[in-house]
Simulated assay, not measured.
Amino acid sequence: MPDVVLSVENLTKHFTARGSLLRRSPHVVRALDGVSFDLRASETLGIVGESGCGKSTLARTIVGLERPTAGRVTLRGEDVHAARGRDLRVLRRRVQIVLQDPYTSLNPRRTVRDLLLQPFEIHRDLLPRARREARIDELVELVGLNPDHLDRYPFQFSGGQRQRIGIARALALEPEVIVCDEPVSALDVSIQAQVVNLFQRLQRELGLSYVFIAHDLSVVRHISDRIGVMYLGKMAELGDRTDVYDTPRHPYTSALLSAVPVPDPALRGTRSRRLLEGDPPSPVDPPSGCRFRTRCWKAQDVCATTEPPLTAPDPREQAFACHFPMTQPATTAS
């Protein structure tokens, strides 16, 4: 087995929201409720799920922008949130993030040169001042940009070019892990393909490990080695991409995959569509037992009283959290 670079253990993040006119007392938003997984060296772990399931909170907690309510994030055995002082600065170098919106993640008042110099100004001991300009030229060429454009401002670039600048900034400190928080969702389809190919090339050349969060299931399948499916702050299914896509075990995963458009017109209509009824429950007051039971067509009494653990009956297959798992591939009509 490859080395485990990043380990997330029972990660929990609750936010306390203020009361309102209709609800005077504060309430707790359970954004994450016990998420666990390992990220291996040079691996891409894709994270998918509906809006509001906790994907972005997971990304921000991994890189240290949010402190967990419970659980741990460890980088090669070192607790990211327990570190202080110099140890914390070193850990921050090794885990970087690429944000979703390239229009707002870059300071419009600073040139690209200034944006790429900023990491070295914060971590001054990483690179001598005399070598920083040369390093910036290397970074922009690495992501497919022209070094002659370093003195331009972000508004002078297209969306895809801005995202490449964000990737170059994430690479500046030579991290081991990059958390990609929906990095292609704001881009055109043709540009999405270019950026995804760039991520794959950088992984081959630099040995990077990715946590890749996205809504587009086709993009996630293309870039990921393993896939985690989240629902309402928990991991519903986790396994190899081929297993998850071809033989999903959790009903929620099956419903998501049934909604993926079929590109071949000759195959349209050969796959049943599983429509989920109702909206996802509120993370303020999640259902008892299995959180998916209020929308699940397989739910029974035990689902309301006992929460299913995320387990794999066979070590060679994916793990899932369901009392009554699927037994047929998603492409088989029911």
Rank of each mutant, 00 (worst) to 15 (best):
S105D: 01
L117R: 12
L116F: 01
S105R: 06
L117S: 09
L106N: 08
G77A: 13
V140G: 01
T111F: 00
T74N: 00
V80L: 15
D87N: 09
R132I: 14
V140A: 03
R93P: 08
L75T: 11
A82G: 15
V143C: 06
L75A: 03
L115I: 13
R113P: 12
R72V: 13
G144D: 00
T111G: 08
T111R: 12
L127T: 10
G71I: 09
L127E: 07
I97V: 09
I97S: 04
L145V: 06
S105K: 07
L116V: 11
R110M: 14
R76Q: 10
N146H: 05
R113M: 05
D87M: 15
R76S: 02
D137N: 12
T104L: 01
V80I: 15
V73S: 11
R152E: 01
R94V: 13
A130W: 12
T111C: 05
P147K: 01
R135E: 15
L150D: 02
R93K: 14
N146S: 11
L117D: 11
T74C: 10
L99K: 07
T104P: 11
V80S: 10
Q118V: 04
V90E: 15
L126A: 10
L145R: 03
V143H: 08
R152Q: 08
V95S: 02
L126T: 12
G77Y: 12
Y103S: 07
A130H: 13
E141W: 02
L75Y: 01
T111W: 05
V140R: 04
V95R: 04
R152T: 04
L117M: 13
L116G: 05
L150N: 01
L106D: 00
D87Q: 15
E133Q: 11
I136C: 03
Y153K: 03
L139T: 07
R110P: 01
E121K: 15
R109W: 00
P147W: 00
R110W: 11
